[in-house]
């Protein structure tokens, strides 16, 4: 699989990572190399094999639907780069 510049630009957009235009070619080469490497899997017959999501055959545990924690606004916001009045802040999103 060989990725072109446009595809890499689209992946970067999906991943929300700024990639300068002059790095796209190099990155396309690297990512294509990785994809070629993982494509060996296509030679394995996996008909009728269920995907393995987890190694633990446990199933997800259930617990009582009760409040176990809370009232920690200060701790939750303690590491925010720009918290204000008990809220996280972001650049303006509504015009």
């Amino acid at each position: 699989m060989s990725l072109d510049k446009g595809t890499v630009r689209a992946i970067a957009e999906l991943a929300r990572i700024d990639v300068p235009e002059d790095e796209l070619d190099h990155l396309a080469g690297e990512l294509s190399g990785i994809l070629t490497f993982v494509e060996h899997l296509s030679e394995v017959n996996t008909d009728g094999i269920a995907p393995m999501n987890s190694v633990a055959d446990l199933g997800l545990p259930m617990r009582a639907d009760i409040v176990t924690d809370g009232n920690q606004a200060e701790a939750v916001l303690a590491n925010a780069p720009d918290a204000m009045d008990g809220f996280f802040t972001v650049p303006k999103v509504v015009e």
Binding site: I34, L35, P51, M52
Partner: peptide, 24 residues
């Protein structure tokens, strides 16, 4: 970026689901 690509629409089955099957 690789992870984003293999999970993206149209490639999920070819890469991610395939890998999970071989993982089994």
């Amino acid at each position: 970026m690789i992870g984003t690509y293999v999970l993206s629409a149209g490639y999920y089955d070819a890469y991610y689901a395939k890998a999970q099957k071989v993982r089994r």
